[in-house]
């Protein structure tokens, strides 16, 4: 019997807690109820909507952000658990207006169609390249297996990651 008494639950006090996050280099202080997930906090409280909410159960990767450098699904991360941590989102990938090499490659190699998986895909791929600047195909597969894309068939995405790591496959005309 895992479900507890709803009356007791209604009486429960679950006060908001103040959490400090360093989001894309900027410290932010937000007050969140424990049930608020990181993706909700980033989108609704910090106001960065580049991170996408899709399945909200860790099965698509659209909400992937880097938490202290690790790619995590922010839908299965409680914001209260991130106090004092660094969060990097898709908005933090550009250097001013300048796109990162990975972002450029995504555009050049047809890794983007509807774009909804793109922010999460970019964050997973960024984490990959930071750890392994010249990943082989199997490493790319393992790094991006948690990011679903329904548009591209992944061909453009693999090409883009290879290109961004200087392993360009000749582009077919």
């Amino acid at each position: 019997m895992l479900r507890s008494d709803p009356q007791a639950r209604a009486a429960l006090k679950a006060p908001a807690q103040v959490v400090s996050l360093r989001v894309n280099g900027e410290w932010r202080e937000i007050a969140v109820k424990p049930r608020v997930t990181l993706v909700e906090a980033i989108r609704d409280l910090v106001g960065l909507t580049g991170t996408k909410a899709s399945c909200e159960s860790g099965t698509c990767g659209a909400c992937t952000v880097l938490l202290d450098g690790r790619p995590v699904v922010s839908c299965l991360t409680l914001a209260v658990a991130c106090d004092g941590m660094e969060v990097r989102t898709v908005e933090g990938l550009t250097d001013g207006e300048k796109l990162s090499a990975l972002q450029e490659a995504f555009l050049e190699y047809g890794a983007v169609q509807c774009g909804f998986c793109t922010p999460g895909m970019l964050m997973s791929a960024t984490a990959l390249l930071e750890r392994d600047p010249k990943p082989d195909r199997e490493t790319i597969n393992k790094a991006l297996e948690g990011n679903l894309c329904r548009c591209t068939g992944y061909n453009g995405i693999v090409d883009a990651v290879l290109a961004a790591s200087g392993q360009t496959r000749p582009r077919k005309e």
């Binding site: 860790g58 990767g61 992937t64 690790r70 790619p71 995590v72 699904v73 299965l76 991360t77 997973s124 393992k142 790094a143 991006l144 297996e145 948690g146 990011n147």
Partner: peptide, 9 residues
């Protein structure tokens, strides 16, 4: 296990 993100968490 799961996916890369799941293993990181």
């Amino acid at each position: 296990v799961g996916s890369h993100q799941i293993r990181e968490m």
